[in-house]
């Protein structure tokens, strides 16, 4: 197994994100190293997906910057932007498959856009990726003919068809059965080890987090920022923050903590 080269592929510096005048997260800073499986955690509505969309350049940050391989996604244009786009794949929460294309056409699309591979090669690679996520034989189905979990798996296949350096996955295992979830976790681990691929994953699934995460950051809606970061088991065992404790122990947040946090907010 090759030694993982510890160089930073994603730098998030003093980032503030939100919509219009409303700030969702502020003072967000962290780095993600090559080959790392990095998890963004947090309760519903804390801004996990918003942070992810700022990282991939869909939204422009209110302040700060996100550097991918040293380049700012928000300002990159032309060939540089294309190179950056080629370097990462994204799986959206809803799958975001194109409804007018079959699964195979969906998975082929990035290959057609970014490579010079012959048609036959693209077909075979698309079929292999679908097989990899357990959708062998479904290539000619339309997304509307499949269940939500199957659409999600096809979206994962599309995101990884180019074997990009970085994969951003927004809740990849939500809605999948435990067996498929475990298989997806294995696949992520294999890709990270074999191709030194970097993963940035938004998820709530604790079993998945324990199985694959190298490092976790936990966001909080009331703090509007990161309240904990580190390996998941260390956070579970050593964090003194009651919100982090409640999250990892799957408990309701104590009322005292809620009141304290609300009063501190006022």
């Amino acid at each position: 197994m090759p030694e993982k080269v510890q160089d930073t592929v994603i730098e998030v510096k003093d980032l503030a994100v939100g919509y219009g005048d409303s700030v969702v997260l502020r003072d967000i800073s962290f780095n993600v190293d090559r080959g790392e499986i990095f998890i963004i955690l947090g309760g519903s509505g804390c801004g996990k997906s918003t942070l992810l969309k700022n990282m991939i350049g869909l939204y422009r940050p209110l302040a700060g910057q996100v550097l991918i391989n040293g380049r700012d996604m928000a300002t990159a244009e032309g060939t540089r932007r294309r190179e950056l786009l080629r370097s990462f794949g994204v799986m959206y929460q809803s799958g975001a498959l194109f409804g007018s294309l079959t699964l195979m056409e969906n998975v082929r699309l990035p290959l057609e856009e970014f490579t010079e591979l012959p048609d036959r090669a693209m077909d075979l690679i698309a079929v292999m990726k679908l097989e990899m996520v357990g959708l062998g034989g479904y290539g000619h189905y339309m997304p509307s003919e499949l269940s939500g979990g199957m659409r999600k798996r096809a979206a994962i296949a599309r995101a990884m068809v180019l074997d990009p350096q970085i994969l951003f996955l927004d809740e990849p295992t939500a809605g999948l059965d435990p067996v498929i979830s475990a298989e997806m976790d294995q696949l992520i681990l294999q890709l990270a080890e074999s191709l030194n691929m970097t993963f940035v994953i938004v998820t709530h699934e604790l079993p998945s987090i324990y199985a694959i995460a190298d490092r976790v950051i936990m966001l909080d809606r009331q703090a509007k920022g990161i309240i904990a970061s580190g390996p998941p088991k260390r956070l579970r065992d050593a964090s003194e923050n009651p919100r982090v404790q409640a999250f990892f122990r799957r408990e309701a947040i104590p009322e005292v903590v809620q009141e304290e946090s609300e009063s501190s907010h006022e």
């Binding site: 195979m104 077909d123 062998g136 890709l191 080890e193």
Partner: peptide, 18 residues
């Protein structure tokens, strides 16, 4: 390890995308 994810016999016939 990547290669072992697949079996050639699964891909003997590749249907068209539609």
């Amino acid at each position: 390890r990547l290669w072992s994810l697949y079996r050639p016999e699964d891909f003997l016939e590749i249907g068209s995308s539609r």
